[in-house]
Design a protein around this nucleic acid. Structure first.
Length: 621
DNA sequence: AAAAAAC
């Protein structure tokens, strides 16, 4: 992870940096001058460069300190990040793939930009199913030129080597530029960070009222994240996009000394990226005021509004000095968006547009999912056999990392210990570890030094680790959405991935939703699991279809199913996008929006998917 | 019953 090594470690113990450097696989070291990062000098990627770069960051993390443009060193943050590895499914491999690792595999569809813009992949691109609903939806844009974010942003888009907007960007950016509120479903890695960062930066530039230094910071935009690591990831992205715009981006999160963050705030902040706890702390210390907020963005929004987070979010958004709903712009982004969370989110939104980008080319299409019945008692032995099998196959090591999810922090430590005892190089990450340990664990895993990471759900969302070949749900999560996010850690960079779940009798409540998910992803459903699902369906109502409308869309506008609630709900005004004519909201027709002044459209086909020749390359067969 | 997120 990138978030604190440059900030604290390198300033406190700069002499230790060399051993802390992100590992760069030997076979990749001399391959950086190809394709999209052609401007990058090969020499800039040797260890010396990384070393210098890391040191040069110090804790001066403001955007203007980036070495971009000097010898084309630029955007990768290579010295610290170790490469966050994009999924490479779209044309923006570089967005999360500073090393351009994806293209190194030579088996990706993503670099079509380089030579043949008209290649067939563009056709697939157009076919990604998109669903939009809401009133007066701005038209999608097919190119960045068409969007025209202004000179400096256009320059940064070019620097990022973004050639064409991804589907989520094509739709979300015009919506955001129009100042509309937005609820967007899109897989991580599909460019959603850029989808909200570009419009935010554009809006701030247009305001022409950049923040000044001062004892109290008045950010114009706030981006919230559920984990510290994700906050840092967004921060790094936003910094790239804001390069040389004089828009200042600052990050605030717990577990790290607050003084550095406060110092950065005092220098002025336009965009604040934060985790909730630290932000509340800063507001209560009167170091930050939200009174100038023009735009609020929540990433992994469904997590931000779940039981644990909702009060904090409510506090930040409704009980501090943030301008009320309607006089600010609010955007929610997530890969999964259950009904009940949509309902909560609508409290914070005004006349919003719902946008869902299909899953083509994202997680479930590239991931082979297996579910095995394993009683709790047998889990360790079963895991051992699995790992031994990988060893025998050669399908482990630096480029086939294994991520094991467990339910509890204690369980993570215990399993790490047990694996280590049995000769498997494993390390655990969870929220009881201090930040330094979390970071070290992640780095050790990313580098392949410990190719097995045992994790709690701290690692289930937003975490970008390249080369995760296998996700093992040692303990299955209670919530199917968590499962979706977890397995989304593999199948990255266009490579296929494997997800194995240990299903025990404690997971019966999950059976139905799991079966539906497997079916949706064209995965084989074990007979015994089907039996559980049938039996469980009597006990546990609903399932995935309820939330996802049985489609391949990543989400489904809950307002479509909300007729009676609209009629009876005292908060029905929050559904203002339906023009108040709720009674004419006819659910019997899919296209009923048109009749009620609510526009809705779908594009693309369900059947078309990227073709990947990478399945056999994964080594899991 | 658990995880995450402030000091």
């Amino acid at each position: 992870m990138t978030w604190s090594d440059g900030v604290t470690e390198s300033t406190q113990r700069p002499q230790t940096r060399p051993t802390q450097l992100p590992y760069l696989p030997p076979h990749l070291r001399n391959k950086y001058n190809n394709g999209a990062i052609s401007s990058m000098p090969t020499s800039s990627l040797n260890d010396d460069y990384a070393n210098n770069n890391a040191n040069s960051y110090g804790f001066t993390t403001e955007s203007t300190q980036l070495p971009l443009g000097r010898g084309g060193r630029g955007y990768g943050h290579r010295g610290r990040g170790g490469g966050r590895g994009g999924r490479g499914r779209f044309h923006q491999t570089q967005e999360q793939d500073p090393y351009n690792i994806a293209s190194k595999f030579g088996e990706l569809e993503v670099n079509v930009d380089d030579d043949s813009p008209e290649s067939t992949n563009f056709a697939a691109y157009e076919d990604i199913p998109v669903e939009v609903s809401g009133s007066e939806v701005p038209s999608p844009a097919s190119s960045f030129e068409e969007i025209d974010l202004g000179e400096s942003l256009n320059r940064n888009i070019k620097r990022c080597k973004y050639v064409k907007p991804t589907p989520i960007q094509r739709h979300a950016i015009p919506i955001a530029l129009a100042g509309r509120d937005l609820m967007a479903c899109a897989q991580t890695g599909s460019g959603k960070t850029a989808a909200f960062c570009f419009p935010i930066i554009h809006a701030i530039l247009k305001l022409n009222r950049l923040s000044k230094p001062g004892r109290v910071a008045f950010p114009l935009a706030l981006i919230l994240s559920p984990t510290r690591e994700l906050a840092c990831q967004i921060y790094e992205e936003a910094k790239k996009f804001a390069y040389q715009t004089r828009v200042r981006v600052v990050v605030a999160y717990g577990g790290a000394p607050i003084v550095h963050q406060l110092h950065n705030l005092e220098k002025g902040v336009d965009i604040l990226v934060a985790t909730p706890g630290r932000l509340v702390d800063m507001i209560e210390r009167a170091k930050v005021s939200l009174s100038m907020i023009k735009c609020l963005a929540l990433d992994e929004a469904d997590r931000m509004l779940d039981m644990g987070f909702e009060p904090q979010i409510r506090k930040i958004v409704q009980q501090m000095d943030m301008p009320p709903c309607g006089s600010r712009q609010t955007m929610f982004f997530s890969a999964t968006f259950p009904d009940e969370i949509q309902r909560l989110a609508s409290d914070f939104l005004s006349n919003y547009i719902f946008l869902s980008v299909g899953r083509v080319g994202s997680s479930t299409d590239l991931i082979a999912q297996r579910v095995e019945f394993v009683p709790n008692m047998d889990k360790r032995n079963h895991l051992m056999n699995l790992l031994r099998g990988q060893e025998a196959n050669g399908t482990n090591g630096k480029h086939a990392l294994t991520l094991i999810f467990v339910e509890t922090k204690r369980g993570a430590d215990a399993l790490e210990h047990w694996l280590s005892l049995n000769g498997f190089p494993a390390i655990a990450i969870h929220g009881d570890k201090v930040q330094m340990e979390r970071e070290r664990a992640l780095k050790s895993f990313k580098s392949g030094y410990t190719p097995i990471l045992v994790a709690t759900d701290v690692a289930s969302r937003g975490l970008d680790v390249p080369h995760v070949a296998h996700v093992i749900n040692f303990d299955l999560p209670k919530d199917i959405d968590d499962y979706v996010h977890r397995i989304g850690r593999t199948g990255r960079a266009g490579k296929s991935g494997l997800a194995t779940a240990f299903f025990s009798d404690q997971n019966v409540p999950l059976a139905k939703a799991l079966v539906e998910l497997l079916q949706e992803a064209n995965q084989e459903v074990p007979l015994w699991l089907n039996d559980y699902a049938k039996r469980a369906s009597n006990i546990v109502g609903g399932g995935r279809a309820r939330r996802f409308g049985g489609s391949k869309f990543g989400g489904y506008d809950f307002r479509r199913d909300a007729q009676y609630e609209i009629e009876n709900d005292p908060y029905s005004s929050t559904y203002g996008s339906f023009d108040g004519t709720t009674s004419s909201y006819d659910l019997s027709h899919t296209n009923s929006y048109a009749a009620t002044g609510v526009d809705s459209y779908s594009t693309g086909s369900y059947g078309h998917e990227f073709s990947h020749e990478t399945v056999e390359a994964s080594g899991w067969d």
